[in-house]
Amino acid sequence: MSGIVVYLPQKSGVAGGGPCGDAVTLRLGPGEVARFGRGSATTFVELRLADEAISRLAGEIRVTDDHWQLSNHSATQSYVVENPEGAGEYLRVPPRRAGAPIPFEFSRVVLPTRHGTTVAFQVFAPDHVYMDPHEIGGPWGSRTVTAYSLDESATYFLVLVALCEPRLRDESAVAVPTTPQIVERLRPHAACGRLTARAVSSHIDYLAGEKMRISAPAGGEPGREGRRNGKREAIVGLALRFGLVREEHLALLPPRAGAGPRGRETVG
């Protein structure tokens, strides 16, 4: 269990993050707590949300097991936790609720402000555990499992399958797809119509950094492009070697246009 990551994006004006409005990233291990709110000299908060409508101590986050809990210290305001990947899925944490468990791997915590705007920060919980395939039913606690759990319904998993697709189809000499190629490949998918190149890059960074914890390949080419390619190659190599992505996952991808075996072109 490595804990969670809290990310407060940089914002100018009312909704500033750190002391100077910088972006803030917090890593919390199991049992650790982070408080959020407007803060003051006497009310310390780890996550400062500079809006006068927000209480000095608005709430707190506590890491529990593989997830986290949200306590709402406000007496009047409800907070909303959205799942950005859940097609509108969200939950409302009412005033004074203590320790509401948050089930999403990706969350956006939204606090209302006075002017009808909102302040939000993100929480990632990469430790969520998924059982290995073929392990459905029966106790799993004393079983040997793959120590890297991926959510096969998440967008990052689609990105991973798309990255691995050429090698899974045994076009082994083909290079790992580029970000624009991934965007193009996933566009027909219902959940990825508006997927941007930037989002794909974030998903790749999340996979490499938080999920698979890939150690930097030694002796890679210098320069940004080289490093980025090294990371993609490493993700694909490890995902295939340790069976995180398998042939059956190709079915998650939208059908390929015109790239199938000969003869399909005339049909399509």
């Binding site: 269990m1 490595s2 291990g29 199991p30 049992g31 529990t64 593989d66 555990v129 606690g141 004393s142």
Partner: peptide, 15 residues
């Protein structure tokens, strides 16, 4: 097992 693993982590982190 997940909460016990988290507890082991808390112990290892000195908390």
């Amino acid at each position: 097992p997940v909460s016990r693993a988290a507890a082991a982590q808390e112990y290892a982190d000195g908390r």
